[in-house]
Amino acid sequence: MPAIGGGGETMNVAVVQFPASNCDQDAVHAIRVLGHSAWLVWHRETSLGPADAVIIPGGFSYGDYLRCGAIARFSPVMQAVGAFAEQGGLVLGICNGFQVLTEAGLLPGALVRNRSLQFRCEHVFLRTVHNDSPFTWRADPARPLRIPIAHGEGCYYADEATLDALEARGQILWRYCDATGAVTESANPNGSLRNIAGVCNERGNVAGLMPHPERACEAILGSTDGRFILESMLSWRERQAAIASRPVAA
């Protein structure tokens, strides 16, 4: 497959595959389209391989029985993901992957049934809250991202004290907004508190979001805005190295 992105260092991305994951192949495809290497890691594996980053993809892991992500979080591979995150590795959870990471306690809050009770499958706009993150640094907060969602249980919930702390620490990375970037109630597809579409952990190396950036990386799919998220993650290490080697100003 021709590499059409980047041109810099090739990153190796492990994409975790649970029974009933269904965006796993999409994630692998998107990473390869962006010129990097990706492979699948079955849920029973205890090692992620030589991964530079991990994606927990969308789907309905273990049938979403009990609660979305509740069973997946106890699978053997999640031990490896937890250890990888503990070492500072980049982990991105998309849709069901976001639910798995909250259930695993790697991300704050929880995802509950959409306020409308409807499964929502459509393109939405996301406001990048700030670009001081491995998952957002290539995005312009002034330009809304158009990315699809497809979920029935994406209403973000955390108690008020947690929400205030997330805001204060810059852990809210994306909010649902309208085409102009305004964060409004009508632009919120699922009732998420404070229009939250995605968050990161306190350290900043684990993030999750309900929208699907991997479905928005090629023009033929109607949007390429997902690249701003995936390419941020894929080029973060290179950027860190560039910053470290920059001469100190006199």
Partner: peptide, 14 residues
Amino acid sequence: TPKKAVVDPQGKTV
């Protein structure tokens, strides 16, 4: 049961 602080759209619909 859902915590009281969590919006329960199923309960409201019922």
